[in-house]
Design a protein around this nucleic acid. Sequence first.
DNA 1: GATTGCACTTGACACCACGTCAAGTCGATG
DNA 2: CATCGACTTGACGTGGTGTCAAGTGCAATC
Lengths: 196, 196
Amino acid sequence: MPDDGVSTRERILRACWALLEQGQGAKTRMSDIARASGVSRQAVYLHFSTRAELLIAVTRFVDAESDIDARLAASRAATSGLERLDAFIEAWGNYIPVVHPVCRALLDMAPGDEAAKLAWDDRMSALREGCMAAVSALKADGILRDDPDDAAATDLLWTLLSVRNWESLVEGCNWPQARYIEEMKRLARQALMSTG
Amino acid sequence: MPDDGVSTRERILRACWALLEQGQGAKTRMSDIARASGVSRQAVYLHFSTRAELLIAVTRFVDAESDIDARLAASRAATSGLERLDAFIEAWGNYIPVVHPVCRALLDMAPGDEAAKLAWDDRMSALREGCMAAVSALKADGILRDDPDDAAATDLLWTLLSVRNWESLVEGCNWPQARYIEEMKRLARQALMSTG
DNA sequence: GATTGCACTTGACACCACGTCAAGTCGATG
DNA sequence: CATCGACTTGACGTGGTGTCAAGTGCAATC
């Protein structure tokens, strides 16, 4: 089936990814993607029954290509709670710019599309797990503050690390990525730990 | 021209506001708004040439009706920097739930509509002014930390107080409004002040 | 009392994306 | 050769926005 050893499906995924990286998510149409993939519009629907499904597939594809799991492994390997928090923020925070264009597109269509919304919520609840683990690690070390309870601490970290906040600081305020990471680490420490 | 002393234009604005308060922003159509206003769909276009224009007009209407200026006056009246920061967070933070349904609708259409995007950016840059003023007040009192410079401190406060973060905590995590306010005050103090 | 003007109604239409359908092409494989 | 699968082509339905043209009804004005 492939032309150059690459399946049509993958060509579409890559073309879509490339398009999203340089265009406004919401304005990338199925026909654009088809053209960029060198395939007819219908062929796209042959592989992905819906725009939302395609975008979701692209996020999974990007996850796989950029080895998000490996990135997060470091944070799970950390021994102390503080190390783990820092490593988690670094892993996730540095992954955001990679997936961001695709997230943007998914997010843009979420208000009007149930499937997109569910997929996004799913991603976000995965992130929440990571936050919860980091909070637990702090608690295990006895350095989690007790003003907000564990759940609230997780809520706070999760909100802090949202894609929107990254957009706000890095894209909206032109912060360099490194500054974003450092500031988030500081903020998270101040928000969650009893001793800074 | 009015039926009950209320202009058609205002009936539309109020009906739209009411609809947004109980529906999903993006799914509220022009025809829904027309029906709720007891007016034809075309009549709506007679007053607002575009859906974006209508939504923008509603936000301004809500601003006026809820006296956002009076709310913010308190923060400007504060004498100390810390008082001012707290008052600002309280004024804006407690205003969010009021405008939120309308913001939601505007935000939902922003990705695909230039006018909506501009209107939103405009609102956000007004908020930024407020943040900057609060930061300046802290600096005047000599209690602004110097790790992040003034601009970055403003960026941080502005991002912290974003509508998205309110949504995340209050709607996403079911925080009561009061808790949101208190936590934001704490977070802002920790993030901006040299002495907590 | 007729005329003009204004706010509004009615119904049709163009537009744009998404998604669907049916028929056809082309190459590989039995 | 026949058939199957991946793909193309072109037409179509749908839902929402925004436009257009003709009409209605009331009020102020002549």
